[in-house]
């Protein structure tokens, strides 16, 4: 192992960390909004539910990389797009990558949200209805808090999986961690050292996020932990 080389490569790779994080945060935010929109659509009507199902089916059934290519390279096929006011945005690899990551995350997150909502027991909802709560109060005080707690572990996995997915942005020339690593390799041909360093950065990042989500889960749902009080039920 060439310690000097590694000491030199680490800071270079870390320079890509802000972009990696930004891509992840933006796509998670956008994806979250899309997921909320999809569950609204699902609740609206039969047609709406089928449209949401189709969206999820398409985005979960195809590789993310092809979704990125379709947006980045594919849209340019149409003169109408190239001449539209949006073109200065859509020709940016950054915008295309975020767009694809968002659309993709929205599909997965909507399934997680759906699972969380389904796990809210009818008993808890009945107890809320019978106490004269309005639908809004019920949603705010009972349904969403329970669904969120239920979905948290799965959503934590989705967060880490999005952080990893941002590495695909390197394929459309973005210089986040993987992009920088790839460029360094083509200069130095020292693939093993460089990619291992990049992997270590992701590993630490993902571990930190997983720990944070665990902490939040423990904090929000202490009742899932067995404690001194014996459950006799």
């Amino acid at each position: 192992m060439d310690i000097a080389f590694i000491a030199q490569i680490f800071p270079k790779l870390l320079a890509g960390l802000p972009l990696t994080l930004l891509l992840a945060v933006l796509s998670l935010l956008g994806g979250g909004l899309i997921a909320l929109g999809l569950s609204g659509l699902r609740a609206s009507s039969w047609i709406g539910a089928r449209v949401a199902d189709f969206y999820v089916y398409i985005f979960r059934g195809t590789p993310l990389l092809i979704q990125i290519f379709l947006i980045y390279y594919g849209l340019a096929q149409f003169p109408a797009v190239r001449h539209s006011v949006l073109w200065p945005l859509l020709r940016e690899p950054y915008v295309c990558a975020v767009l694809a990551l968002m659309l993709n995350d929205g599909a997965y997150t909507s399934e997680i949200l759906r699972g969380g909502l389904r796990a809210v027991s009818t008993g808890a909802i009945e107890a809320a209805r019978v106490s004269g709560m309005t639908r809004l109060t019920m949603l705010r005080r009972i349904v969403l808090p329970l669904a969120f707690r239920q979905a948290l572990p799965a959503y934590g996995a989705e967060i880490t999986s999005m952080v990893k997915a941002t590495s695909l942005a390197s394929v459309v020339t973005l210089m986040e961690i993987t992009g920088i690593a790839r460029a360094e390799v083509s200069e130095t041909y020292r693939a093993i050292e460089i990619f291992l360093c990049a992997a270590a950065i992701y590993l630490v990042l993902v571990t930190v996020i997983a720990r944070a989500v665990d902490w939040l889960e423990q904090h929000l749902s202490p009742y899932r932990r067995p404690t001194g009080a014996r459950s006799l039920a």
Binding site: K164, F195, L203
Partner: peptide, 18 residues
């Protein structure tokens, strides 16, 4: 589970070449 798939493929392909 903590490392991007793409990076693992790079590692095996380019690392293997190295």
């Amino acid at each position: 589970r903590g490392v991007p798939d793409l990076l693992v493929i790079y590692l095996f392909y380019f690392g293997g070449r190295q």
